[in-house]
Design a protein around this nucleic acid. Structure first.
Length: 274
DNA sequence: GCGACAG
DNA sequence: ATCTTGTCGC
């Protein structure tokens, strides 16, 4: 008898776990290209000007000015309709100097640990388009809503998108993804240990620091979860996040979030009236 | 087996 | 992610 099972049967039996194995392989492969230290030519606005070490040119490093933010919102009528949004903030003026949107139907579901396979494609397209059409304000650094290193396999959306686009990225989680024994309760205890702390290292069972839980503003009881994406160190990432936090959520992400929602609402209204 | 689980 | 009004407080 033929022993080759029916493909449909495999699919039904294994469900999405078959895809998840491929996804894990993809994450492991891309992770080999991940850079976890500072790897960029700019310096922080508040820092003392440095000389470029290489070549004896003696030129000053440029100051970090253009910080990007990406987010995706979804239609309430049809949850498969997504609006990917890329925003660039001028750090000096705190103004949005670029905003672009891409509406598409997503076919891949949200599965914890595999967010990038759902969201990275549309965001990467926005970045590639901008690099070609508006290179002058192309972000020197990108903030991503979703985790970076703080991830079951150390390769969340921020890492994934950073490696694909080869751009420095920081991951911002608004909720804790439970990984390596970290729980909201533990983090809460750490933050309230003694006096209320501003931030605390997130150290997993492995002993590695996966990120930082930080209260971005004075009144914020609920922390945000900062982890590195690509080509940046955690200490630099935390400094940048502090620079961009007017409210609990860093401004680039907050702007992307608000404008993304707004774009979908307006678009739904226009469609229903024409 | 059960619960937990970024967006 | 998304729904939804007011309300408390600086």
């Amino acid at each position: 008898m033929e022993q080759i099972p029916d493909r449909t049967a495999i699919f039904q039996t294994c469900g999405s776990s078959e895809h998840q194995n491929n996804w894990i392989d993809t994450q492991d492969a891309l992770k080999k290209r991940l850079v976890t230290k500072d790897d960029f030519t700019w310096r922080l606005p508040s820092s003392i000007p440095e000389r470029d070490g290489e070549g004896g040119g003696g030129e000053r490093k440029e100051v970090l000015k253009y910080v990007g933010g990406v987010d995706i919102s979804f239609s309430k009528e049809d949850p498969s309709i997504a609006c990917g949004t890329l925003v660039v903030l001028d750090l000096q003026s705190f103004n949005v100097v670029y905003a672009d949107f891409s509406v598409a139907r997503l076919h891949i579901p949200y599965i914890p640990g595999f967010l990038a396979f759902r969201e990275a494609p549309i965001l990467w397209e926005l970045l590639k388009k901008m690099k070609k059409e508006a290179p002058l304000v192309y972000p020197q650094l990108l903030m991503v809503d979703g985790n970076g290193l703080l991830h079951p396999r150390g390769f969340g959306l921020a890492c994934h998108l950073g490696v694909l686009a080869d751009i420095p990225t920081i991951g911002i989680g608004k909720n804790l993804h439970h990984v390596e024994g970290l729980t909201q309760l533990k983090v809460r205890e750490l933050l309230e240990d003694g006096a209320n702390k501003e931030f605390v290292d997130l150290i997993g069972d492995s002993g590695c620091t996966l990120g930082v839980a930080m209260r971005a503003t004075l009144g914020a009881l609920k922390p945000i979860f900062v982890s590195i994406g690509h080509r940046i160190s955690l200490s630099t990432a935390v400094k940048v996040v502090k620079l961009t936090c007017k409210y609990r959520v860093p401004e680039p992400i907050r702007q992307a979030d608000m404008r993304s929602r707004d774009y979908l609402r307006r678009r739904a209204f226009i469609q229903s009236n024409s």
